[in-house]
Amino acid sequence: MSDIAAQRLVPIDVDGLCVTAHNRLLLAELNCRIGAEGITVLMGPNGAGKSLFLRCLHGLIPPQSGRIEFAGCQLDQSIIKRQSFIFQAPTVLRRTVYENLAFVARLRPEISADETDRLLTEMRLNHLTKQPARLLSGGEKQRLAMARALLTAPNLLLMDETTANLDPASVQIIEASLRTAAANGLKIIIVTHNIGQARRLAHDVLFLNAGQLTEHTPAELFFTNPRSAAASAYMRGELTTTG
């Protein structure tokens, strides 16, 4: 591994990030620094701009203005390659489970066959390897997406409401895997509406409302004593509308 590949992508510095679409300001002047430690959870009501922000971090959406720096480096192809992104709707290729992973392995020659097998086992998919991926259940598909995301040994894992609509067993498998990965030094940023899951996983919480960052606090503080009114209303289940 080269020095650059070994380098971490944290801290992430976001400076004046703005995204507009159809003359609507979707992300307004976002400023934050996401640290190296643990799992960062993005929370906020629907339409707050969480997914958008996550996509900006992965280069899927170009911002109108503002900068994002990963450990001091501008976002480019080499940085995107060192990130993995898991989408809300599980996207799988119209191939077998094994072929879905083999496709990624062919893109990155450094991936070993052992790693593929190890992840299939970790995600409890090893009995399904020859199944067409499109016939998997929602939970199995998302576990496949998780295995695919981890296969490239990323330095940063971005997850967009990945465990919404999944059965508890699949959620448990994915969360266990996230905790292990985080403990091994992988930086993870997830978007979730599940307050229980956020409590279980979060090291710190970014709370977005109507395209603005209303607070960024360590998890224990956020859940016991949120600073912003919007965040406390959200957790009481009272914040529904966005501006």
Binding site: L60, L93, R94
Partner: peptide, 24 residues
């Protein structure tokens, strides 16, 4: 269906085209 995934994986254009033909 595949666009975001391929962008995320930085799949080169020619590989993407062959994959589309293969999967379809």
């Amino acid at each position: 269906d595949y666009r975001d995934l391929f962008a995320s994986l930085c799949v080169p254009s020619h590989v993407a085209i062959l994959s589309y033909i293969y999967d379809a």
